[in-house]
Design a protein around this nucleic acid. Sequence first.
DNA 1: GCGCTGACAGATTTCAATATCTGTCAGCAC
DNA 2: GTGCTGACAGATATTGAAATCTGTCAGCGC
Lengths: 195, 195
Amino acid sequence: MNEAVVLTSERILEVTEDVLRRYGLAKATVVDVARALDVSHGSVYRHFPSKASLREAVAKRWLERVSRPLAQIAAEPGPAPAKLERWLRELFDAKHKRVCEDPEMFATYLTLAREACAVVKAHKQELISQVEGMIAEGVAQGAFDVADPKIAAAAIFDATRSFHHPAHADEWADCTCSTRVDAVLTLLLRGLAAR
Amino acid sequence: MNEAVVLTSERILEVTEDVLRRYGLAKATVVDVARALDVSHGSVYRHFPSKASLREAVAKRWLERVSRPLAQIAAEPGPAPAKLERWLRELFDAKHKRVCEDPEMFATYLTLAREACAVVKAHKQELISQVEGMIAEGVAQGAFDVADPKIAAAAIFDATRSFHHPAHADEWADCTCSTRVDAVLTLLLRGLAAR
DNA sequence: GCGCTGACAGATTTCAATATCTGTCAGCAC
DNA sequence: GTGCTGACAGATATTGAAATCTGTCAGCGC
């Protein structure tokens, strides 16, 4: 009963990421993954019903690595405005770092995400509800003046797309980027603030 | 001297748009354009040094059809906040209409624009400076409280990307879209407002 | 029984031959 | 002289045959 050699979904996902990194998205096949795991490709299909579902699971893992640390920030106590700002900056940082440190792998994950549209939708909803929580908190603290925290959260998400949506990743290397982040955050926090 | 049959750059551009509409971006060739104009393809190359420059000119025309009516709004007299809101809504409407009424042609123009990156950059700068003008006006009127109109204009542009950047066009048909536009505009105008 | 293998059919991708297009230019027509 | 044509070379796209991959499943080994 050696744990290390048991074939689990988790192990398949890890090796799949390696294979994607090594071969690139276009060339990585299920056969390659099976070879890297030293099993037949039929075995992989015992854990994932299709190549698409395997890719979807890889995308999900990737998105969870973004949303988990953010959930932690959202759960912390303290004044909502500062927390919201920190949360947003952390989100932007996480994305910007990923694209800067390994642009190829970012492109790979991006394509995976495009294919796994349902997973991305759930991820977006998760992030928006974290924001909603912080805005509701701010309202309770008397710091924010907002009619509907749900709608305001969606608005914050929409208004910061330039800095977290991968379609704009090519601008994230721009040297004016941090100034632009500051300007948008200032505008939005002023817009939320009670007066 | 029949004006109608003289081969001008303008006439080539018009016919090129027709050809793009008829054949689609991938299949439209310079030979097709020349055939539609009833001249040899060599003649087209007297007016445009390359296929790329012809496509660029088509993209430029398209973008100008967006920015011209907006410039008119920006030039009107009146209170800046209402004008800025009207300007932004007009921008969103113009884009949304284009994608709804003819999605195929929108996709064509989008690809042209991607190839003509310099033209798009200039278009963005043009739009941002129109916004800058309105913000400066608002500051002069005492309606806006903003340190640097240039930076604020860029921030307004960034914060409204969801509704004017073609990467998000697939969301513009969403029924919640108009609510989301309202929410973001409310937030941004509150953020700009003097208090 | 349970999990894995590997042969298989149909779908997809690759590759090289073939066809078409881009961009040039000598020469023709006005 | 001016502006257009159409043949041409090199670049790019298309096509169809061959190779590879995906997803299934009967059967093997534990």
